[in-house]
Amino acid sequence: MSRLAVVVFPGSNCEHDVVAALERVGIEASLVWHQQDSLGQVDGIVLPGGFAHGDYLRPGAIARFSPVMTAVAEMARQGGPVVGICNGFQVLTEAGLLEGALRPNAGRRFICRDVTCEVRSIDSPLTVDCERGERLVLPINHNEGNFTCDEKTTRRLFEREQVVLTYTDNPNGSVGDIAGICNEGRNVVGLMPHPERASDALLGSADGLSLLSSLASFLVGKRAGRPAAARSAS
């Protein structure tokens, strides 16, 4: 069974939902306090949603200096899956592990509702089992989800298929309707929607399981010695 670490910052609030949802797809996950600088033997890391350090200054601005981020950066460098959900996505951009930044929503409102997303790339730890163009209903729950980067970077993200998910009806002003991206190495992925909150029909949608079971497949593939890059080339 694959083992993931789910990082808890002061102010994280989705960590237990993430652990429960990962268990549903056969991934064993354990909570790790942000002050830990080593994670032991884990196959990947999830940074869950919430309001790390109260979102003071900017979401993720303080969290990126937590000791655990050294281990996160090392996992990213080694090619292991690193997934940032909502606040976790914000932390990854602040840490420079993903490009761009997340600004306050264009309408100046906190948005908490279901949105429809389209899978734009299946070459990421969260989408290996999806189909390109697949539509997923997922909840968003954020004040700063307005993905921003300069035009050159936006163009490059689309050209290199680093845009993993887009909104079909842009709720927050994100450039290019971007809901989730990955890094150039394709092992670090961040998204504003919450797949763990769409992991059972009782929750209104089970579409998040497509993303989480992709993560399970990605982990198995990785352990069998097939890194993501090799898989996409074949």
Partner: peptide
């Protein structure tokens, strides 16, 4: 390093 994010 902290107070401003140069991306925005």
């Amino acid at each position: 390093r902290l107070l401003a994010n140069p991306v925005m």
